[in-house]
Design a protein around this nucleic acid. Structure first.
Length: 582
DNA sequence: CTTGCCTGCCC
DNA sequence: ATTCTGC
DNA sequence: GCAGAATGGGCAGGCAAG
C-alpha cells in the first residue's frame, strides 16, 4: 500500500469531527489493506510498531524529530524549533518546510506503508554509540522521499500523536465496517483486543478469517479494567446498590501471570516488568497456591513489620533495570492483590467480582502478598467512615466495585469507581499561587498561544516568589483566551528579580496575578525552588487550576513557603529514614 | 569520569 | 494522573 | 457518557558532550 493513501486518508480524518464520518473514512482505507498491511496500519495509527509488551519502542521524541526535519529540509535546527513553537505541531512544520524545498528535490520512488513501517522498526532497534544520529538520519531519509502531506503524518507517527481523532475504539468500529459492512463485529473485536492487548494481531486474525480472534492466554497481558471517578458516596451506592469498597493504595498496577514456577509481571500500560521485581517473583512462586493464575494487584514499598505504606516517590524508584537485587532488599514491594482473571485453565473474567474475590482469597497466603482490605456495604455512613479510615492509614481513597460485575477489561466504566480524597472539595489541598510565567501550547492549544502556567508561592523571608508547579489543566478555552490576554500585557524579557525558578517558561511575567490551584499532594522536588534546601524543594502532584483569577489577592497574599512546609509535614507519610530496618 | 539532554513510563 | 470539548 | 487530546511531577536509563 502506498503511504500516500495513508496520508490522504489521515488528512480526511483530520478534517472530520463526527465519529461516524471517521469510521466511514477509516474503513475505506482498511478495505484496501491485506492481512499484513492491516496489522502495520493499526500499529502506525497507534503511533507504535509493536504491542507494548514486546518492548520495541521507536525512541524518538520532539527533539530528535526536529533534527530529522532539519536534515531533510536544509533548515537549521533553530529554525525548525522556532517554527514548532509557532505552530505547536511538528507535523505541520515538516509539511511546511518540505513544501518550501519541493522545487529543489528530484522525485524518487513513492513510499509504501511497509517501507515506513520497516524503517521505524529499524529506528527502534538502533542502539549504542552513534545511535541517536542514526535514528535521526533514518527518519530524515524517509522525509526526503515524502511529499509535504506525507511528511505531516510521517513525523507524527514516532511522536505517537497522529492528531486524527482516531483511537482504538474508532479503529475497532472501522475494522468491523471494513469486513462486515457494519459495526456488528465491534464487540467480538473488542473482546479479542481486551484479552490479547494487540489490536494489530486481532486485525490480522480478522482478515485471515480466523474463527477465534483471540483468547485469554497465560503470559500475554490482558488490558486492565479501569475505574471511573465519583466524589459522592451516595451516588456510588445509587449505581451499585451494594458496593465492595477496596482500599486504593498509591503504588503501581501489577498484572501477575503464573504457571508453576514461571512468573511474569506487566504494568498498567502492559510493559513487561518481570525483571525489575525478583522478590515479587519469589513471593508469587511461594505464596500463590495455584498452578496457573492471572492476578491483578497494586504493588508498593511497604514495611511488613509495622504495616506502614510508603509514599509513591519511594515505590517508583523500583521501576528500574539496573541494581535490581540491591533495591529489592532495601525497598521490597508488597503485592496487594485485588482481582483474579484466570485460574488453573479457566477464564474468570465473566464471573461476578464477589465470586472472583472469593477465589482469590482462597489461593493467597501471607508474606509479601495479601488480598487488599475491603468492606461490602450498602450504607452511606459506613462507606463514608471507611473512606475516612482509608485516608487515615495512608491510602489514596477507595475503589468501589459492583459486586455483580464482570472483569471489564480495557474500558473505564462505572462498575469500578474511584473515590479519592482530592475529589472531595472540602478535603483537597487548595493553594493560591502567583503566576510567574507561561508556556505556548501544542496541538489544539497552539491557536491560543497558551499551553500552561508556571506558578510560585511567596517567600516572606526573602520577599521573593519561588516556583512550585506548572499548571496545564483545569482551564476552559475561554479561560485560556483570558489568561493569554492578561499575561501578554505583563510579559517581560528577563526573569524578574524577585522570581526564583530553575524552570524557564516561554515567557516570564511580572508577578501580579494570583490563581487557585488544587492538588492531590505536596511532593519533594528536584526542580522547583519553593522551600529549597540543597537540591530539594517542593512541588505539587496533579495540579489543576480552579475558578478564575483571584482579583482579591495580591501576589504577597499567595500561599507562603512556610505554609507549604507545614502542609507537607501534615501529610500522611512515612519516611524510610525513620524505619530502622531500611 | 561526570554532567546534562532526551525519552519512556510510572502516577 | 486531571480536565475540557465535540458528538 | 464516550472518545480523544490537551496538560502535570518525577523517576531511571541511554547516549552525547564536557
Amino acid at each position: 500500500m502506498e503511504f500516500k493513501l495513508f496520508a490522504e486518508t489521515a488528512f480526511e480524518l483530520e478534517k472530520t469531527s463526527s465519529r461516524l464520518g471517521m469510521v466511514d473514512i477509516l474503513s475505506k482505507l482498511f478495505k484496501k489493506a491485506d492481512k499484513n498491511t492491516i496489522q502495520k496500519l493499526i500499529y502506525l495509527l497507534q503511533g507504535r510498531v509493536a504491542p507494548p509488551f514486546e518492548g520495541i519502542e521507536v525512541g524518538m521524541g520532539e527533539k530528535f524529530v526536529e533534527r530529522s526535519i532539519s536534515i531533510a529540509t536544509g533548515y537549521t535546527e533553530k529554525e525548525v524549533e522556532s517554527l514548532f513553537r509557532k505552530k505547536g505541531d511538528l507535523g505541520l512544520v515538516a509539511e511546511a518546510l518540505l513544501e518550501k524545498k519541493k522545487q529543489l528535490a528530484f522525485s524518487e520512488q513513492d513510499l509504501t506503508v511497509g517501507e515506513v513501517f520497516d524503517s521505524l522498526i529499524k529506528i527502534a532497534k538502533t542502539s549504542g554509540e552513534g545511535s541517536q544520529e542514526k535514528k535521526v538520519k533514518y527518519l530524515a531519509e524517509l522525509l526526503n522521499r515524502a511529499s509535504p502531506l506525507e511528511g505531516r503524518y510521517l513525523v507524527r507517527i514516532p511522536l505517537a500523536n497522529l492528531q486524527l481523532g482516531v483511537g482504538d475504539p474508532t479503529m475497532m468500529d472501522a475494522l468491523s465496517v471494513a469486513i462486515k459492512g457494519d459495526t456488528s463485529l465491534r464487540q467480538e473485536i473488542e473482546t479479542a483486543y481486551n484479552l490479547s492487548s494487540d489490536l494489530g494481531l486481532v486485525a490480522k486474525n480478522l482478515y485471515e478469517g480466523k474463527k477465534k480472534l483471540a483468547e485469554i492466554k497465560l503470559f500475554n497481558p490482558i488490558r486492565p479494567a479501569l475505574a471511573e471517578r465519583e466524589n459522592d458516596p451516595k451516588a456510588i451506592l445509587e449505581r451499585h446498590g451494594t458496593t465492595m469498597a477496596d482500599l486504593k493504595l498509591d503504588g503501581f498496577r501489577l498484572q501477575i501471570h503464573k504457571k508453576g514456577d514461571k512468573v511474569m509481571l506487566f504494568s498498567r500500560r502492559l510493559e513487561n516488568m518481570t525483571d525489575s521485581f525478583p522478590e515479587v517473583i519469589e513471593t508469587i512462586k511461594k505464596n500463590v497456591k495455584a498452578d496457573e493464575a492471572i492476578i491483578d494487584s497494586e504493588a508498593l514499598a511497604y514495611n511488613e513489620s509495622t504495616g506502614e505504606l510508603y509514599p509513591f516517590q519511594y515505590t517508583i524508584q523500583r521501576k528500574r533495570k539496573h541494581g535490581v537485587e540491591k533495591m529489592a532488599e532495601e525497598l521490597p514491594l508488597h503485592v496487594f492483590a485485588f482481582d483474579i482473571m484466570y485460574l488453573n485453565g479457566e477464564s474468570l473474567i465473566d464471573l461476578p467480582y464477589k465470586k472472583r474475590r472469593e477465589l482469590l482469597e482462597k489461593i493467597i497466603k501471607k508474606d509479601g502478598i495479601s488480598v487488599i482490605e475491603n468492606i461490602t456495604t450498602s450504607d452511606v455512613k459506613e462507606l463514608e467512615s471507611y473512606f475516612k479510615k482509608a485516608i487515615e492509614i495512608g491510602a489514596e481513597g477507595l475503589v468501589c466495585k459492583d459486586p455483580n460485575s464482570i472483569y471489564k477489561a480495557g474500558t473505564r466504566g462505572f462498575y469500578w469507581i474511584k473515590f479519592k480524597r482530592s475529589y472531595k472539595g472540602e478535603l483537597a489541598d487548595t493553594l493560591d499561587l502567583v503566576i510567574i510565567g507561561y508556556f505556548l501550547g501544542k496541538g489544539a492549544r497552539a491557536e491560543f498561544k497558551f499551553g500552561g502556567l508556571l506558578c510560585a508561592v511567596y517567600d516572606e523571608d526573602s520577599d521573593t516568589f519561588k516556583s512550585i508547579t506548572r499548571v496545564g489543566s483545569g482551564f476552559s478555552e475561554e479561560m485560556m483566551v483570558k489568561l493569554r490576554k492578561l499575561l501578554e500585557k505583563i510579559k517581560v524579557k528577563e526573569k524578574p528579580a524577585r522570581v526564583d525558578s530553575i524552570i524557564e517558561p516561554d515567557f516570564w511575567v511580572k508577578p501580579m496575578y494570583v490563581i487557585t490551584v488544587k492538588a492531590d499532594e505536596i511532593t519533594e522536588s528536584p526542580l522547583h525552588t519553593a522551600g529549597r534546601k540543597g537540591d530539594t524543594g517542593y512541588a505539587l502532584r496533579f495540579p489543576r487550576m480552579i475558578g478564575d483569577i483571584r482579583e482579591d489577592k495580591k501576589p504577597e497574599d499567595a500561599t507562603t513557603v512556610s505554609e507549604i512546609i507545614r502542609m507537607f509535614k501534615l501529610q500522611k507519610h512515612t519516611s524510610i529514614e525513620s524505619n530502622p530496618e531500611a
